[in-house]
Design a protein around this nucleic acid. Sequence first.
DNA 1: TGCTATACCGAAACCGCTTTCGAAAGCAAA
DNA 2: TTTGCTTTCGAAAGCGGTTTCGGTATAGCA
Lengths: 344, 344
Amino acid sequence: MKRPTLKDLADALDLTESTVSRALNGYADISAKTIERVQSTARELGYKPNQNARRLATGVAEAVAFIIPQNHSSIAEPFVSQMLQGLDESMAQRGWDLLVSHSLAAEDEAQTIHRLITSGRVSGVVLSRPFRHDARIDLLQQSGFPFVVHGRSAKSDSYAWFDIDNEQAFESAAAHLISLGHHRIGFVGAALYFNFAYQRLEGYKRGLHEAGLAYDESLVRVTELSDDAGERAAIDLLNLADPPTAILCVSDTLACGVLAGIRAQGLVAGKHVSVIGYDGLKIGRHTNPPLTTMSQPLAQSGRKLGDMLLAIIDGEDPTKHQVLKRAELVIRNSDGPVWAQQHH
Amino acid sequence: MKRPTLKDLADALDLTESTVSRALNGYADISAKTIERVQSTARELGYKPNQNARRLATGVAEAVAFIIPQNHSSIAEPFVSQMLQGLDESMAQRGWDLLVSHSLAAEDEAQTIHRLITSGRVSGVVLSRPFRHDARIDLLQQSGFPFVVHGRSAKSDSYAWFDIDNEQAFESAAAHLISLGHHRIGFVGAALYFNFAYQRLEGYKRGLHEAGLAYDESLVRVTELSDDAGERAAIDLLNLADPPTAILCVSDTLACGVLAGIRAQGLVAGKHVSVIGYDGLKIGRHTNPPLTTMSQPLAQSGRKLGDMLLAIIDGEDPTKHQVLKRAELVIRNSDGPVWAQQHH
DNA sequence: TGCTATACCGAAACCGCTTTCGAAAGCAAA
DNA sequence: TTTGCTTTCGAAAGCGGTTTCGGTATAGCA
């Protein structure tokens, strides 16, 4: 009835626990014959090592945690699950556990991290949506705990990360819009303590600058990452005396709201005003109109992050694991040449 | 540098490990004064019990697993993350871990379950999207392992579950359509080994029956749960000699595809043909046209499931934990009265 | 045949915490 | 002061593995 223990196995084989243990773990000082014998009866007895015992003995947790970004449930949706999928693949392959964790109401995220790394439950963590100056990263670094981050903070030279070149992405998105004739381009972004939001704004500015266009602060809106916020921002922008003819959004969720805002003003996106989102969510194919967006390889990111983390736990140098990918513009129908009527 | 152990604490306090342990765990045979003393120096030394050791000693894993439904990444997206959010809240409150797990490529889900419950890593699991006849549930039941399921299988009397009344939902959705004058209603469903798909089909049938309408098998399509599949099914349905004037879908993802299919046929949803989805995803507000759908309380489900599981692990009778909620019809713009032209 | 390497396995300590059991100390009642 | 409980702790045995350190056979070699 109860699960067989190492001792049961040893008794059945007429060996000692230590021998059986080493046989199972592939030590060199056990004869091939014995190993075979041990493995086969282990199988037939259905022996599974007790993970807690083994973890206690070895001191390694054989588990990593994914810190769920808090207070951003709407944006987190597609994000989290895709990341998780990849991470899990990576961990499963090694037989490790993946546990998810978000902050308790009473504590901040730094405390969450602290609790996690001092509990001995995990041997590494993956962070996402880092802030520009991120206390969690500082904490992790000075404690020497293995971690990787999806995205990066302002100074990112000394830890492992996987990121998309946000500046490049938004620079090229802006360039695309400019090539369509737009020169008043709005920007709907998120709080700048999110480094991705900051970087994307920088990219946008650079795109304007490259084209010799002036940066006009009145065309940028910083909001929370929800569709409703996007809608409000769009309406706001469109009611300007000299409204933008195109709007760049830092997320697809936001862009959905912007599309709604444009409709609410009686205009049609892709015709009267262009909009470009970011994330490349599949759902963008079904919006009205289908959303042009910058697509990032979310699916693989998780997998890659997991592999990186494992390598770091194995002792590799974190700074050897810094990968920067490019987002790719997928053009659907929410962008187009600047609306001619506008000028009459 | 190293984390303080129980022994360190005991030495510092000039007590034994056992006393300190009991003091920390609120045993009655420790004086209030000692407890206070122990707690305060524990705090100042930053003592955190080693979870693995404690789990080994107590035999309880203090963790539960969420089995990620496999091969349905597209549908799983909003689903998984919302569920996780609630589950995590429930576990965090108790200081337990939540780990996610999906099947390795090489094994089926029953094996995954088996591996999980024999590894000692978790003391309970939550399953989602159960099949009508689900080997995983059978396995779990006969092994006596604590579990809860989101949804339920065909015979669900002897375990704990949280479900939406799918039959009722689709019956009322059908009734709604019928009240709008539709009497040729298509159904785009998923493989019937998914019990939710089966139940929804039954509900659809019952809705027709209640209204005295005959069930016409040529109007139902069984596909995978993706937008593309939905689009194909819709086009297929619309090309029938006597096409449906409304289409019911078992998921919002599918419904998105159906909307696309309708557009592809040069028709407009909500006018020429009505469509109703299921899930209540926020994104449905941004489709073209905004999707009318049956909304389920995904957010709370996770939380509720977690609490149920914890109660069961504590020894409560699983059959006391069976809750059935209702979905609610949220009307947006993809439904409407039957298109008059159709009859001329 | 005798001696030293080598291959294989057993003994035992340890990982850090929990929990039962019994002993000492304290206190009240007698 | 002695008896009889209580209260409060300490001792010790696990929980189920891992790993170092030796100790036998056995084999290799002269």
